[in-house]
Simulated assay, not measured.
Amino acid sequence: MNKGLVTVFGGSGFLGKHVVRALVAKGYRVRVAMRRPHTGMDLKVIGGVGQVQLMQANLRYEKSVARAVEGADAVINLAAILYEEGQQTFEGVHVRGAETIAKAVAAHKVTNFVHVSAIGADENADSEYSRTKGEAETLIRNLVPTVDIMRPSILFGVEDSFFNRFATMAQYVPVLPLIGGGDTKFQPVYVGDVAQAIATKIAQSSDGKTYELGGPRTYSFKELLQYMLEVIAKKRILAPIPWFGAGLFGLVGELSGLVPFMKPFLTRDQVKSLKTDNVVSDNALGLSDLGITPETVEAIVPTYLVKYRKYGEFHQPGKDSWPEETGA
């Protein structure tokens, strides 16, 4: 049954693919607005014939954004970046891009609107990522008062940028950094649960609330790296790095991103973000208010980190050689 048309900005990203899948499962038609539609052909097979439409739109061009919003019954903004690259800046994507979308939503009188921000979003934050996320929330709320804002903690899932990043590092280096000593707290949340939360709010129609989305357990940065190493069956030294040294380490990470086809493993702005705990606030609305029981790190992460073990799924704990064959 067709429940209407939802335009999704940022639908080709890690979270976006899960959101598109969740919307399709609820019977919506989905219009994915993206800069390069030809790179998102895999999205079209998520739904039935014609259920997922790809449309060219660039957040720097208001007319293209307006065309993507026109005729939609609901709009979702997932557009975000983790580090700056070329014309993709925090100010340009998080603030100006979000403002352009919100203006189009208001102009077309769409009241069902979900915007994804992040735990720690604060206009006064030291981190540019967190500051611009906070500024965007204020701009959007003023333009579309009915917007629901979702603030997830770090996302985990098959293509995540946290566990995969450090598991990849563990393949090549004997030491992993504990930024600021590794005491920063996180409440990792499964990407599929966040997608379900967004689709659920679209089905209910947004009503101007803010949700903070975290998993069932809080971990320190050190605990997360220890668990990752346990899952991939590797022993690595976890070296505490004081905040000053972490800044230099972030600079090295940024320089690594200058190598073609390489992403920076860390940036100075991410180091600033790590100075603040990334956990759900007391009394905040969350997944349980949307009827969602969150998945645990322990239930999901091993299913995709297995590829980093020496022999993949055939790895046997405590053995460094190929598993012995057993007779029939």
Rank of each mutant, 00 (worst) to 15 (best):
L274W: 10
G291T: 02
R268L: 09
E295W: 10
T303E: 15
L266V: 08
L285V: 00
E313G: 04
V306F: 12
Y311A: 03
T276C: 13
V297M: 09
D277H: 07
S281E: 14
A299E: 14
K310Y: 08
Y311M: 05
Q270E: 14
P302A: 08
A299R: 13
L305Q: 02
D289F: 08
E295C: 01
L290G: 00
T303V: 13
R309V: 08
A299M: 13
S273A: 13
Y311H: 01
S281Y: 12
E298D: 10
L274F: 11
P294K: 12
T267V: 01
L290E: 05
Q270V: 02
T293N: 11
V271N: 02
L274S: 02
G312T: 04
V301D: 01
V279T: 07
I292K: 08
T303C: 10
G286L: 09
G312M: 06
Y304Q: 09
Y308A: 02
P294M: 11
V297F: 10
T267Y: 06
E295K: 10
E295F: 09
D269C: 07
G286R: 01
D277R: 04
A299D: 12
Y304K: 03
T276E: 14
V280T: 06
L285N: 14
D282H: 15
K275Y: 08
V297K: 02
P264E: 03
Y311L: 04
I300L: 07
L305F: 00
P294I: 13
